[in-house]
Amino acid sequence: MKKVFIPLIMVALLALIPYVAVTYANMSYLFGVIIPYAAAFIFVAGFLWRLFDWLRRPVPFPIVTTCGQEKSLDWVKQNHLESPSTRFGAAVRVLSEVLFFRSLFRNTKAELHTGPELVYASSKWLWMGGLAFHWSLLIIGLRHARFFFLEPPAFIAALEHADSFLELTLPAFFMTDAIVLAALTFLVARRIRDAKLRIISLQTDFFPLFLIGGIVLAGMGMRYLEKVDILSIKALMMGLVSFSFEAPGEIGALFFVHLFLVSMLAIYFPFSKLMHAGAIFLSPTRNLANNSREKLHRNPWNKPGKFRTYAEYEDEFREKMKKAGLPVEKD
């Protein structure tokens, strides 16, 4: 349980720091301007560095993972989606993984029944939870555009309108808020409930979940419970995206908790498992086409080899071979 509580306490502490600092030490400039800029810089630089680092690693073998018929003779039906043989096919496969989590869709779970019988049944819970979590986060992120644009793009306004379809509360209730909380709860509970998962889970698995949970709770708290001054927030955010160093106005402390946790997430991002967001595009098991029978995959670090053909060999030893009575191809 230590590995659950330590990250939880860390997130709580992280949340407390800006709260105390802003409420009692009036350090809103540090938490509203300096740390966000630093975090954004670290995030962008770290992200790019990680991508560059991965990109410059050679790929010695075509190690594409497949689970379908690869391209073969004409009368053998190829599974284009599972075993693509073109770059385009591979791109479609990567995108279907990114957008729909296809590999999780295939999950199965072994169950031991009385009998005794071991059965494998499909288990879609992680797929559903993951999909709900990631898509909600994407929509929530896009919705935040209203703080960064004077007039957000039309599609974002439409998204916001659809998200607040249900007339529930007066600052309109967003469905994705509820969905992301439910999904987070499921993802945490999943790791704690099942003994097998509990054993393989690490602090670094729980920490980002709790961190994102903290961000979501702080954000929802500002919207529905402990109100903050939204005009000052917008002014601060518009200032930040235009590289201004103007001090933030009077905003509730909860906002700084939210912003600080987001900054921490941004800093943590490039150096953690969260980099799967970038890595999924660069993963050689995914982004390579399964065409090893058509094209020779050269290991980039191999020097071009020096080979000697039989013809060359015979040229050198022809006379001696003839003398010894060995058959030669050319006279």
Binding site: E111, H113, T114, G115, E117, V119, A121
Partner: peptide, 9 residues
Amino acid sequence: VGAMRKGVK
């Protein structure tokens, strides 16, 4: 249906 597929009760 799940039980039927798995062949269990």
